[in-house]
Amino acid sequence: MARLTVGGSGRRALLIAFVSTVVFFGLIAFLVVNAPGWDQVRRQFFNWDNFFASAPGIVARFEVNVRLFLIAEVLILTLGLLVAVLRGLPGPVLFPLRLLATAYTDLFRAVPGLLVIYVLGFGVPGLRLPGVPNDPFFWGVVALTLVYSAYVSEVYRAGIDSVHPSQAAAARSLGLSQAQALRFVVLPQAVRRVIPPLLNDFIGLQKDTVLVSFIGVVEIFRQSQIRSSATFDFTPYLATALVFVLLTIPLARITDWLVAREKDRRYATSVRATGQRGRRGRFLGGGG
């Protein structure tokens, strides 16, 4: 977790950083504003009347995306862990399970997510099998879960592999079964280590919920599309982008905080145990 730093110390470094930033972004702003098509772009992308008119409808539709990614994330964290554990099972008898888990991750990481959404959202209901739902929201959740679980299982697996074998050996030597060693010793350490990459995938999932609009779910992107085509104006997309930014940035900070808290707890001094708080700040420091 590299922290954003000025890259030096003292007032001089601060001043140089400030001037360089102003010049850099000023130059970009100057180029954009003086571009030949700027006036038209400004009218179509930064129409504040349209922005405020479309914003409430867009924000309201975001509820669909939130439901999509919350339901899918719970399923992903579960299925991803299951697949990761299956891939790590020992012994020749369980080879078919390992094969299945490996084939699954290979396939669903290879196929573009949008294609999975299309195939499941249009194809499966098209079979008209009795009892199979044809709700695009349902198939959207299924498709996102299948695609993201494949990635997340690899994240979990990397975490499991990062726990030194001596940990499992110590657990087994105390009489814990293989499953208990995994459950109480290996997985808790593995999961703690992969929280940042898991959050990374969670943010990716949040953004990919807009793909579900292609099979007919009216969510935030579809809503902004509707607004946009009614007014020939792209400002609703800007509002949509802003909603995602406002969601993901706090999430990234929360992860940083979770990681710092975990480190703080593990390396806390015994003074902490008697009630005094340790200094958390140093763990947020560069490279920490």
Binding site: S166, Q167, A169, R172, S173, G175, Q189, R266
Partner: peptide, 20 residues
């Protein structure tokens, strides 16, 4: 083997305590 290991304790050079 799990039942056997209950009765045999082992202590390792690198401690191998559970850090979490």
């Amino acid at each position: 083997v799990d039942r056997i290991r209950r009765h045999i304790g082992i202590v390792f050079q690198a401690f191998n305590l559970f850090p979490h």
